[in-house]
Design a protein around this nucleic acid. Structure first.
Length: 932
DNA sequence: CTAATCACG
DNA sequence: GACGTACGTGATTAGC
């Protein structure tokens, strides 16, 4: 039937349906594989309800279409780059459901239309106008006010949720003008949701008033000088361009070119087979049954499969059979694997190398797996002569494919956007491959999946995961390369043995991935994994490969000076003690101090030895010289051995720089850990120690740039605990410790003394750590009762803090974990234990959301940073929990500071809008001491 | 291999 | 009422 008089077109706003469905339902997943499916389920239910309610009624439509947005960039973005710029990113678990909603629409046999680069609103506008011109009626199923400009002359809107019709009167009620003037009002009022600027200070009410007075926006702008109110007049004159731009943005395109006609949208009944097959595929049991009943057919049988579970027989329970792993020795076999990988779209991948230092280690072989129990190893640079061969040989072993040929063949796979590369600790493999010119992407990482789901419960190394989740102990690497002095590198391992070991790793990784993938959704950490873990891998790899330049001469000079000073102190100490002993032995120091000299305060540890930590020695140092000298010696010794000596050994001979490794899964709270060397604990608190930072230098012509969050944890505490006084202080840029002191001790701000402030500062930090009277007393060296008094007063003054602590501990007791603002879970398995462990767990539970949220914030900044500084001559080098260090060409330092600061200060958004500002302090200089 | 100590946030 | 406590890390050394 050709569309014309008497016809009735229904236009369904598909995107609105999807978002309603998504937000209305809990995050359901498909049971068989964990695919997120909640929005699709809700969408189908809404379509079904629509059909039940409308399609067969007395006012049934003759034509129906569901219209979707397509592409994120439309002509409106060309007009205005900030259009919809403040929209949250699409939730990660919604993204894969979008194509499924198209398929759902088609399964219901309803026309499904979208046009690249256009919003659904424009398509609906064009269709509505054409239908009206053809003499038909139109109902738009949406509550979007942007569509209200289309109402009138046979076009109505219907809010499908409230089942409320919106006609001319409805539009008048909402906008104060008729549909034909809606865009004029919108242009003036603007729209924060779509980021339409409009005229500042003018809302819908005022806009309608003005339009009604002047007749149209054009007349209003033309005769703006006639507006009586001076402020309003000025606003309209000054913002004319912006208002005109706004109108262009809200005006829907009613005359789009379409590749279909109204006639193509004729209403059709669903094909039962097609529809039920789709519903069965989605595993919608209830909906399948309801629709099957309505269509008077048998509901489909939906298998109750659960391959991720342990009870069900499935791939995960296949035995491991190392002898069946394939060793790839010719290009034909390799091509067979590549074909299978391309067909599947994913592959578990692992590299074997000659060492743990990715900057130095050489690639020895590669293993792959696409099916559980089935894996291969591609030996590349194994040496002739086995591990037992004392002489070894630098000759390559026979029967290996040339490294370059294999990499050339695998490079397209490893860089293919549509092939997922799955690894365990992929940062390592990514760095090895980067040295061969391969940028591996996209990736999944079983180590990070485990971390996102189970931080705080157990480690995330392959051996732990395999034993825990696959019930299988992998072949220990020691069986191949030995340990200690007789350890050899992997290229000395016989290829047959290497195949069993290496291919097993790929097999295990694939099995872990198959198990973890659905669990990620089930445990609701998909967003954490997708936004805070996975995208950080290439960022950290880049920082580690960049390294930081360290001046060996500076360190060497300091080492010599320290050695002299240590010898001098040692003489003094031995003289004071009256005998020679090892100053570096706490046990011997304890003997001398507490037995020979008979000093008070000697406490023995669980090994029966005296303990001589710095705070005990500090107390003794007020009375005696010996403990004071021992403290001096310890400080110098620490600086020398850990820093000026050890750091020199970490300077890479090829780059002249120090390349740390970040452990992404090291800290349960979400913080990073830095190893080999640890560059997150370079001294700064003492003048002497801080000089070590002078050895961390920029290349000639460049500067080091340090940006650090100011008081980020206290700010987060103020936000999560909802402490208005703290929030206000941060908003006003006050000295937070002084403010706390003023509140607690009733001291006016202008009479604040450094000592009172110091005590308040200790309390503020104590709060973050899960304060106790004992701990505060020890820290401030005051009687315990007095410390407890401080804490009582603090809680009295800020009752929200105690409530936060109680709530957090109760949450942990109930759920076994706590969460950061961004959804990271930190498990607290000891929280319900009794005994001293409970106290630890309790304080850890209080601290974890605060420390963890701060960690999430800087992670978000780091993930966005490469994009923000792209094109600038700058590199991000280091992260020290609340600080990022960059190396920048001198002339660009200020520009990079601005760009990086903007990213860091806005890092919580759009996911979280904090009630307090995040403030970033910046510094620059030729070395780290100057920059910090 | 573990405990003690101390560097950082 | 007593107990034992600040939160999160990594590197080095001594001493078994």
């Amino acid at each position: 039937m050709a569309f014309g008089k008497g016809c009735h077109l229904h236009l369904i706003d598909g995107s609105a349906f999807i978002f309603r469905a998504y937000h209305a339902l809990p995050p359901l997943t498909r049971k068989s594989d964990g695919l997120p499916i909640g929005a699709v389920s809700g969408f189908c239910n809404m379509l079904q309800r629509y059909i039940d309610g409308n399609a067969n009624g007395s006012d049934a439509p003759t034509h129906v279409a569901v219209i979707f947005d397509k592409g994120s960039h439309t002509f409106r973005n060309d007009l205005y780059d900030q259009y919809k710029a403040n929209r949250d990113e699409m939730p990660e678990d919604l993204r894969p459901q979008i194509p499924l909603t198209r398929r759902a629409t088609e399964a219901f046999n309803i026309a499904c239309k979208e046009i690249e680069g256009f919003e659904a609103d424009d398509i609906m506008a064009t269709l509505a106008c054409r239908a009206r011109d053809a003499g038909g009626r139109v109902t738009i199923l949406s509550s979007d006010k942007d569509l209200m400009q289309l109402v009138g002359d046979g076009v109505e809107m219907l809010d499908p949720m409230k089942n409320r019709r919106i006609d001319r009167e409805g539009v008048m009620e909402k906008f104060g003008v008729g549909p034909e003037r809606v865009v004029d009002v919108q242009a003036l009022a603007g729209d924060s949701v779509d980021n339409i600027p409009g005229a500042p200070g003018i809302g819908i009410k005022t806009a309608a008033l003005l339009i009604n007075e002047f007749g149209s926006l054009e007349d209003l702008l033309e005769r703006a000088d006639e507006i009586k109110q001076p402020k309003r007049r000025q606003t309209l004159i000054e913002n004319r361009a912006q208002i005109e731009l706004s109108k262009a943005l809200v005006q829907l395109d009613r005359d789009m070119e379409l590749d279909f006609t109204l006639d193509d949208l004729e209403a059709r009944d669903p094909e039962p087979d097609t529809l039920l097959a789709f519903l069965a595929e989605m595993e919608f049991r209830t909906l399948s049954k309801r629709i099957a009943d309505a269509l008077h057919v048998e509901p489909p049988v939906i298998m109750d499969t659960d391959p991720g579970g342990t009870e069900v027989e499935g791939p995960a329970d296949l035995p491991f059979a190392p002898e069946t792993y394939e060793c790839i020795r010719d290009m034909g076999a390799l091509q067979g694997w590549i074909d299978r990988i391309a067909e599947r779209g994913y592959v578990a991948f692992d590299t074997e190398t000659t060492g743990l230092n990715e900057m130095q280690a050489d690639l020895v072989g590669i293993s792959l797996s696409v099916d559980p129990g089935h894996a291969c190893y591609i030996p590349l640079t194994h040496r002739a002569g086995g591990a037992d061969d004392l002489f070894g040989s630098d000759e390559l072993a026979e029967g290996q494919l040339p490294l370059d040929d294999v990499l050339a063949a695998l490079k397209p796979v490893l860089e293919d956007d549509s092939i997922l590369k799955i690894g365990q600790n992929m940062k390592y493999d990514a760095k090895i491959l980067a040295r061969h010119g391969v940028t591996i992407a996209p990736i999944d990482d079983t180590m990070l999946m485990s971390y996102a789901m189970n931080a705080g419960l157990h480690g995330h190394g392959m051996d732990t995961l395999s034993e825990r989740y696959l019930g299988h102990t992998p072949i220990p690497i020691k069986e191949l390369i030995g340990s200690g002095k007789s350890q050899v590198t992997f290229d000395r391992v016989a290829i047959d043995d290497a195949t069993k070991y290496a291919a097993e790793d790929a097999d295990i990784t694939l099995r872990l991935w198959q198990r973890f993938r659905p669990q990620l959704h089930q445990t609701q950490v998909t967003t954490v994994y997708e936004t805070l873990e996975r995208p950080l891998v290439p960022v950290l790899a880049g920082m580690e490969m960049a390294g930081i330049r360290v001046d060996r001469e500076v360190l060497s000079r300091m080492s010599n000076a320290f050695a002299q000073k240590m010898a001098q102190l040692e003489d003094e100490i031995h003289g004071l003690a009256g005998e020679k002993f090892n100053v570096g032995s706490p046990a011997q120091v304890g003997e001398i101090l507490f037995e020979k000299m008979g000093l008070e305060g000697g406490k023995k540890g669980k090994t029966g030895k005296y303990s001589t930590p710095a705070d005990v020695l500090e107390d003794l140092a007020t009375e005696h010289d010996l403990p004071a000298r021992i403290l001096d010696w310890r400080q110098v010794s620490k600086l020398k051995s850990t820093y000026t000596d050890a750091l020199q050994d970490h300077i890479d001979p090829d780059t002249g720089r120090v390349h740390t490794s970040y452990v992404q899964t090291g800290a349960s709270t979400g913080r990073l850990a830095s190893t080999d060397p640890n560059l997150q604990n370079i001294p700064v608190r003492t003048e002497e120690g801080r000089r070590i930072r002078e050895a961390f230098v920029a290349e000639p012509g460049k500067v080091l740039l340090s940006l650090d969050y100011s008081q980020i944890e206290l700010r987060i505490l103020a936000h999560v605990a909802g402490i208005d006084a703290l929030k206000a202080a941060f908003r006003e840029g006050q000295d937070i410790h002084a403010m706390t002191a003023s509140e607690m001790f009733d001291v006016p701000m202008d009479e604040m003394t450094p000592d009172i402030r110091r005590q308040a500062k200790a309390i503020n930090f104590g709060v973050i750590y899960g304060i106790s009277g004992f701990g505060l007393a020890r820290n401030l060296r005051i009687p315990r009762a007095e410390a407890q008094g401080f804490i009582d007063r603090y809680f009295e003054r800020f009752p929200g803090i105690r409530a936060y602590m109680d709530d957090t501990v109760n949450f942990a007791k109930e759920h076994g974990f706590v969460q950061t603002l961004f959804g990271r879970k930190i498990h607290t398995p000891e929280i319900n234990a009794k005994g001293p462990g409970a106290g630890f767990a309790k304080r850890a539970a209080i601290n974890a959301p605060i420390q963890g949220t701060a960690a999430d914030v800087i992670r978000r900044a780091m993930v966005r940073m490469p994009g923000a500084i792209a094109g600038l001559p700058a590199k991000m080098l280091l992260q020290v929990h609340d600080e990022l260090l960059f190396e920048v060409e001198e002339g660009a330092a200020d520009k990079v500071t601005r760009a990086a600061r903007e990213i860091m200060e806005g890092a919580a958004e759009p996911a979280i809008k904090l009630d307090v500002p995040l403030i970033v302090d910046a510094g620059q200089g030729a070395n780290w001491a100057e920059a910090h």
